[in-house]
C-alpha cells in the first residue's frame, strides 16, 4: 500500500545549509499557485522522519554540516537527495571560503543536481520530477530478494542490509 502510493505523494524536507535565501525563496515560489509543485502530491514537511525527498540549499557551512548529516540519517529509506543551486552542487561563489565545505556531496550522496544561481522554479520542478523516478527505482530495488550472508570471506560473515539493497544497477557486479 505504502509502496504503491509513495511515488504519488512524496513529502519534502527542506534544509538550508548556509545559502543566500535565494534558492529557498524559489522553493517557496514553487509551492505557490503559479508553479504549484503540490500538484505532484508534494507537501513541504518539517519532520525528517516522514519525508522522502531531501531538498538541500547552500554550500555546507561548518556549523550546519552536523545537522545536515543528522537529518539525512533520520530520514527513512528509500530517500532521494536533491542539491538545489550552484553553491550546493560545487560551492559556487563561496568555494574556498574558510567556513565553507564546497558542496554537499562531500557528506551525503546526492541523486539530482540542480544548477543555477538562483535555481529557477522550472528547474526545481524538473529536478523533483526526476527525483520521483529515482525514488520509484529505489523502492523497487528494495523489494528484490537478496542474500543476507552472501560473502563468506568477510571476517564476521555479516553483510549490512544497506550495502546490498541500496545500490542501483551495479549490484550484480558485486556478487
Amino acid at each position: 500500500m505504502f509502496k504503491k502510493f509513495r511515488k504519488k505523494s512524496p513529502w519534502i524536507l527542506h534544509y538550508n545549509a548556509g545559502s543566500c535565501n535565494g534558492c529557498d525563496i524559489e522553493i517557496l515560489a514553487c509551492l505557490s499557485p503559479k508553479y504549484d509543485l503540490e500538484r505532484f502530491g508534494v507537501i513541504n514537511t518539517g519532520n525528517p522522519k516522514q519525508s522522502d525527498i531531501f531538498l538541500v540549499t547552500g554550500p555546507v557551512t561548518m556549523r550546519s554540516r552536523e545537522r545536515l548529516v543528522e537529518l539525512y540519517t533520520q530520514m527513512p529509506e528509500p530517500k532521494v537527495v536533491i542539491a538545489v543551486g550552484s553553491c550546493t552542487c560545487t560551492g559556487g561563489v563561496f568555494r574556498d571560503m574558510y567556513n565553507v565545505e564546497d558542496g554537499i556531496d562531500r557528506y551525503i550522496p546526492v541523486d539530482v543536481y540542480i544548477p543555477g544561481c538562483a535555481a529557477s522554479p522550472e528547474l526545481i520542478i524538473d529536478g523533483v520530477v526526476k527525483a520521483l523516478d529515482i525514488l520509484e527505482k529505489k523502492t523497487k530495488e528494495r523489494e528484490k530478494p537478496f542474500r543476507l550472508f552472501k560473502d563468506f570471506t568477510l571476517k564476521d560473515g555479516i553483510v549490512s542490509r544497506r550495502e546490498s539493497a541500496l545500490r542501483i544497477g551495479d549490484d550484480d557486479a558485486k556478487d
Binding site: 548556509g18 545559502s19 535565494g22 563561496f94 574556498d96
Partner: peptide, 27 residues
C-alpha cells in the same frame, strides 16, 4: 550560516568582482 564573506572580500576577490559576491550574502 556564517560563510566568511567579509574575509573573502579582502583575500580572494578583486574590488571589481566584489559587487557580485556581496550580492550573494542575501537573496
Amino acid at each position: 550560516v556564517h560563510r566568511g564573506v567579509e574575509r573573502a572580500c579582502t583575500t580572494k576577490f578583486k574590488y571589481d568582482a566584489i559587487g557580485y559576491v556581496v550580492a550573494r550574502i542575501c537573496g
